[in-house]
Write a protein that binds this DNA or RNA. Sequence first.
DNA 1: CTCCGTGCAAATAGTTTGCAACCAA
DNA 2: TTGGTTGCAAACTATTTGCACGGAG
Lengths: 140, 140
Amino acid sequence: MAPEALTRGADWLSGAGLRPTRQRVLLAGILVGDGADRHVTAEWLHDAAGRVGDKVSLATVYNTLRAFSDAGLVQEITVDGTGSYFDTRTEDHPHFYWEGSNSLTDASADELQIARLPSPPEGMEIAKVDVVIRLRPKAN
Amino acid sequence: MAPEALTRGADWLSGAGLRPTRQRVLLAGILVGDGADRHVTAEWLHDAAGRVGDKVSLATVYNTLRAFSDAGLVQEITVDGTGSYFDTRTEDHPHFYWEGSNSLTDASADELQIARLPSPPEGMEIAKVDVVIRLRPKAN
DNA sequence: CTCCGTGCAAATAGTTTGCAACCAA
DNA sequence: TTGGTTGCAAACTATTTGCACGGAG
């Protein structure tokens, strides 16, 4: 892992007022160290940390992802009941879910145009619209 | 529970080639006995069966809902990691998720118009588009 | 020095499964 | 008869929590 990735991770943390502990800086570095958007599971992030050498307990990975999510640094996404994904891109945007590999990627937000949305019931407002486009291998 | 509800449930089952056991007929009757669409959790359905008098084990409720879902009689929906809902309406349509009460209702399909959808990546096709509109109480 | 953060193990929630008894066809 | 179905308890997966120790401010 590149040293500037850790620096970038640390900046990302302090921007949200989170204390930059060793574990958090490492996980943050993995998540945003190269500037790319990522969709990770707790399990994947735990393994990734282990691969880099430093190890972080799985419970801490969960706690940390929750802290990041509460701080608005990542967005939690659930697609099927089993496991959730954390997305480093926090704007509202649609996702592709790849049924074969159970992975999640961004779909470009410009390509989704919702012309009309059901009006919210009395006394309610729309908090967020989750759009997941499920992909399957083309049957050819 | 009205007797014709059971009849209707039994018909619903046989239409899908599922063996009409006592438990299945009961659960089916609760689900579609009055012709209304329903969004239930396993837990809710289990309790509902108990309220009617006959009891069905929770494991059987799960197995049964899975069987219904495999047979295409209901649709499984996951909105947040915790628990899934089974919808008796099987066409593709958007849902409202009520954040206060953790319940799920239908949103009218005509009121959602998607003008443009991201094109699926090479070799993939769109299996389904899940749209969940999250509602929160209006902050007034 | 004082708390928040961490690690481990145990707890929890939701769901599935193994297996013997049962029942619809 | 025969294979699908049920119930119970135990297994499982994903996630959270209690508690003692450790490190950041």
